[in-house]
Amino acid sequence: MKQDNYISVKTFCKLHGVGESFVHTLCEYEIVQVEYGQEESRFPIEELPLMEKMVRLHNELEINPEGIQAIYHLLGQVESLQQEVASLKKRLEALG
């Protein structure tokens, strides 16, 4: 993977006004994947939308990392249930 495909944790935290420890805690809770290099820690660009979502929850709703971890898992369940409901609705329509 090219260097451009990563975001430095330092840059991200500076721009979003969060401490680096916030990102490290998210990594510890297995919400995002951070690579720890000798010079700097970074994460893949694909993780950026998720990271920004977590920062919004933290900054805008004052939710701590523990709360974010719980929300992350619940949101995963909500989304999978929504998909299931949508697919069942379609099946019901087709059979109805």
Binding site: R56, L57, L61, E62, I63, L75, V78, E79
Partner: peptide, 13 residues
């Protein structure tokens, strides 16, 4: 804040 926690788009996909 109370309403935002309830209705925030990130929490209500």
């Amino acid at each position: 804040r109370k309403l935002a926690r309830k209705y925030h788009p990130d929490l209500n996909p």
